[in-house]
Every structure is written in structure tokens, then in C-alpha cells.
Amino acid sequence: MAQKQEEVQIVPENRVYGRPALLTDRVMHYCPGCSHGTIHKLIAEVIDEMGMQDRTIGVSPVGCGVFAYNYIDIDWAEAAHGRACAVATAMKRLCPDKLIFTYQGDGDLSAIGTGETIHTCNRGESIAVIYVNNAIYGMTGGQMAPTTLVGMKTATSPNGRDVKLHGYPFKIAEMIACLEGVRYVTRQSVGTPAGVRRAKKALRKAFENSMEGKGLSFVEFVSTCNSGWKMTPVAANQWMEEHMFPFYPLGDIKNE
């Protein structure tokens, strides 16, 4: 009898967490366990909590995140590969009252789009740049990225990344942190509940900076690509902690 009384009633007043209002019903195309889904959720939550749905424009990249516009219910532009920061620059200059952010992967932002990224940072555009670094090209099938760790095997570094052949993994967050126009640089991850909570605060800060015209905010998400890494999602999260975090340490890099 007592046991039965303690059964939680599934009613709206008992609901403490659920699907964010700004996520569309569409099932995401991402692989099981992919960090993109969690990051999308955080963006949807923060925009909703800030009451900014009607004043936000996102810029999606080329890469796995290309279809972000199918999942978060805001206005979006899909940029050419690497050019999201240039697209966002014009949007913010022309619509300074809008929340403008880019959503880019490591290939998009730190390979083909390095020039646009760095100059947008240097101009101090008041946008938020969301950078998903999973050290591999996911959408094209697991090729080496600028951020691929030394020794890491990918489709184009089948024997592991060799610095003589491919150079060193690229830490663009540290690089842009030294630019005057950049206000906030932080590195986060969404593999654990605590990590997700911290990442959400970082995202909120980046979005608030954008609205306050405080210059550019850059939020890197050290992420997994379990399909590309050829691991289960749980193993990928563990591998990320053991191998990615030592090279890409989490926390604020610049916070002015």
C-alpha cells in the first residue's frame, strides 16, 4: 500500500525537465551519442530562456551540423564551407539588435574557414561562435581534421597522424584568445551531466555578450564522433576524457 502511494504521478506539475520548446519534432540525423544533439539542445534552451527566439539568427556550417536548421526552431542561414563567420559578420552589422551565432565544426572553422574565423574574431564582431571539435571530419566519412590528435587514426591518416606528414593538431581557441576583439573564449564538453551544466552557463554568457555588444565570444565544445572514431558512444566519451582533454583542456581561456 505504502509502495503504491510513492509512485510518481506523470503530470505536468511534476515535470522538472523535458524536451526544449525550441527543438523541432524532427528526429536528428546524428549518430547515437553524438555531441551535436546535446549542444543543439543547450542552444535551444538558452535562446528560449533568454526569450530570444524572434530575434535570433543562426548560421549553420558545412559538415554534420549543416542541418542544424532542421532542429532548432529559429531563423537560419546555411553558409558555404568555412564562411559562417563572414555571413554572421554582415548579419550583426546590419541587424545589431539580433542575436547572431555561428555553429561550426573543426573542418569548417579551423581548416577551410580559418581566415574568416580569425578576421571576424579580430574585428571583434559581437557574435557568438560555437565550435564543435571532435578531431575528425564526420560527414565526409572520418577523414583527418586540423584538430586530429597526433597518432590518431582516420581515413586519411590510416597509420595515425604523423607530425612530419600532417603537422600538429591545431588549437585555434588559444590562438584567437590573444586577439583584442575577442571577449570570451572557453572550452567545454557535454559528455557528462556536470559538463553539460557548465557548458550551458558558458553558452548563455556568450549569447549575452553578443546582445550587449561586448565583442566576440567563442565556445569550443570538445566532442566525440563515435562513428568516426569507431567506438561505442560510452567508450568515445571515455576516450575523449583520456586523450582529448589533456591536449584540449577544458575551462575558460579568456574571460574579460
Binding site: I57, V59, A77, A79, A80, R83, A86, V87, A88, T89, A90, M91, R93, L94, C95, G115, E116, H119
Partner: peptide, 26 residues
């Protein structure tokens, strides 16, 4: 009117893309 010297022609045309997407005359 916004006037911006971009870092390249590639950036310029993508800025145009962004502005045009917002319905602006760019």
C-alpha cells in the same frame, strides 16, 4: 549604410550572402 572592408573577396561575397539573407539591400 554599413561599409566594411573585408579580409578577402571570399569574405566579401559571404557577407553579402548574410546581409541578403536578412532581406537587406547589399
Amino acid at each position: 549604410m554599413v561599409v566594411l572592408q573585408a579580409e578577402s573577396e571570399i569574405a566579401s561575397i559571404n557577407m553579402v550572402y548574410g546581409g541578403a539573407a536578412c532581406g537587406k539591400r547589399v
